[in-house]
């Protein structure tokens, strides 16, 4: 009786909440379950390509895609394209993060800065960043600068919103403790405010990277350039122009894998920080 009546305010162990267990599939651990499902999907995919008689120009099978990825890595083209995309993304992220830092600092310092941030984010955040690509091309030409500009715009707003929310909602007691133990100025920001707002900061960076990643691929596809200096979007476009369908798939798989990897990096960071500290539940 007493145990089952544990109020919801208890520690979020979930121990009291018995998970309905079923036999067979649901009884297996997560990793083999996902692996089996992945194998099944690959099997169905390969089976479809082998048996349906679909033109290999339309759909490539997993074996061909794997071969294309291998070839792309072996001759360095896929790696080079990935490196270029990541490099542009990184530039945009760094600038976006710096801008977000400046904006949120201004917002926490002055009423005017706060109003400015609210106005800018409410205007620019709902705008899909890719929509400003035509303007970016007009201003900066078909250059990396235009891409970086678009990526910056894609990442700065989600980061700024999350970080400023994080700063604004920091528990006032912990800030009072910071001042009480003698912290002032930059030190209280670095040692108390930032760690206390870390769940939102990480959430903002996570959203920023996800937005940036989608935007750069879209931008590269729209950019439509050819040749040796392109990123993954160019890689896909180029493969499509020359009917190398397995390479189109290889590019897509690479994009998906990097997206997953970015997500894993953030999950790992969260595990080691805010989840470990009990500031965010799993």
């Amino acid at each position: 009786m007493q145990q089952t009546a544990t109020p919801a305010t208890g520690p979020p162990d979930g121990a009291a909440r018995a998970r309905p267990r079923r036999g067979g599939w649901a009884a297996l651990p997560v990793a083999p379950r996902r692996a089996a499902l992945l194998l099944l999907i690959l099997g169905v995919w390969q089976g479809y390509v082998s048996l349906s008689g679909v033109s290999p120009l339309l759909v490539s099978g997993p074996a061909d895609v794997a071969a294309a990825i291998y070839a792309g890595i072996a001759d360095g083209r896929l790696l080079a394209a990935t490196a270029i995309t990541l490099q542009v993304l990184l530039s945009g992220m760094v600038i976006g993060m710096a801008l977000a830092a400046v904006l949120t600092t201004l917002a926490s310092w002055s009423r005017l800065g706060d109003d400015l941030l609210v106005l800018l984010t409410s205007m620019l955040n709902p705008l899909p960043a890719i929509a400003i690509l035509p303007l970016a091309i007009l201003w900066f030409g078909l250059s990396t600068t235009a891409l970086v500009f678009v990526i910056t715009n894609a990442v700065v707003w989600p980061i700024a919103i999350n970080v400023s929310t994080g700063f604004r909602t920091v528990n006032p007691t912990i800030m009072a403790v910071g001042r009480n133990i003698g912290l002032r100025g930059w030190r209280i920001v670095r040692d108390v405010l930032i760690p206390a707002a870390l769940p939102q900061i990480i959430a903002g960076l996570k959203t920023g990277w996800a937005f940036g990643w989608r935007t750069i691929i879209a931008a590269e596809l729209v950019f439509g350039a050819a040749g040796g200096q392109g990123g993954l979007g160019f890689f896909i476009n180029d493969a499509r122009y020359f009917l190398r369908t397995p390479e189109v798939f290889a590019g897509l798989v690479t994009i998906a894998l990097i997206g997953i990897a970015l997500d894993l990096v953030f999950t790992w960071i969260e595990r080691r920080t805010v989840i470990r500290w009990g500031m965010k539940s799993t």
Binding site: L142, G224, A225, A226, G227, G228, Q229, N237, Y241
Partner: peptide, 11 residues
Amino acid sequence: AGAFDSQMVAM
């Protein structure tokens, strides 16, 4: 042959 590959833009 590839001298201009990185300068080509599809338009």
